[in-house]
Simulated scan of single mutants.
Amino acid sequence: MSSPPLLLVLDGNSLLHRAYHAAATGKLLDEDDRPVWALKGLVGYVARATAKLRPDAVVVGFDCSERSARQADYPPYKAHRPEKAADLSEQITAAPDLLRAAGFCTVVPPGFEADDVLASAAAAARGGGWRSVLVTSDRDAFALIDEQTSVLRVRNGGLDEAVMVTPAGLQELYGVSPALYGDLAALRGDPSDNLPGVRGFGSILASRLLGAFGSVEAAWAAGVDAVRAVVGEVAARNLVSAEARERVEVNRRLMRMRADLSLPALDSARLPLSYGTMRQALAGRGIILGPSLWALTGRTPPPEPEPEPPKYPRSLRARREPSPDQMALF
Rank of each mutant, 00 (worst) to 15 (best):
L134V: 04
A229S: 05
A185L: 11
M164Q: 15
A125F: 04
L134G: 04
V227Q: 14
V231W: 05
D190E: 07
I145P: 02
R155E: 09
E147F: 03
V165R: 00
D225Q: 12
G211V: 04
A206N: 03
G189L: 07
D160F: 06
I145N: 03
R139Y: 08
P196M: 15
R155G: 14
A143V: 06
V231T: 00
E217T: 12
G197H: 08
G158E: 05
L159V: 00
G129I: 10
W130T: 07
G200T: 10
D183W: 05
R126E: 07
V230G: 08
I145G: 01
V176C: 07
A221D: 14
W130M: 08
L205A: 14
Y181M: 10
R228Y: 05
V216N: 03
D140H: 11
G182F: 01
G169K: 06
A185I: 00
V198A: 08
Q171S: 12
V135H: 03
A206K: 01
L173I: 06
N156R: 10
A123K: 15
G158L: 01
G200F: 11
G214N: 01
P167Q: 13
L173N: 01
G127L: 10
R228S: 05
S192H: 03
I204A: 14
L118Q: 03
V151S: 07
E172V: 00
G169R: 13
D138L: 04
A185V: 00
A226N: 09
V216H: 11
A119I: 00
S203N: 14
R126W: 00
A179R: 13
R139N: 06
S120D: 13
S150A: 15
A143E: 12
A226V: 06
D190F: 08
A162F: 07
G232M: 13
D160I: 00
Q171N: 06
L134E: 03
A143L: 08
P167F: 10
V154A: 15
V135A: 03
R131P: 05
L209Q: 07
S137K: 14
L134D: 02
Q148M: 09
L205Q: 08
P178N: 13
G214D: 00
V133I: 13
A168R: 12
L205H: 12
L184S: 01
G232I: 08
S132L: 00
V231G: 10
A123E: 15
V133G: 04
P196F: 13
V234G: 15
A229M: 08
Y181S: 02
L144K: 01
R228M: 06
N194Q: 12
S177E: 14
E147L: 00
P167V: 09
P178V: 08
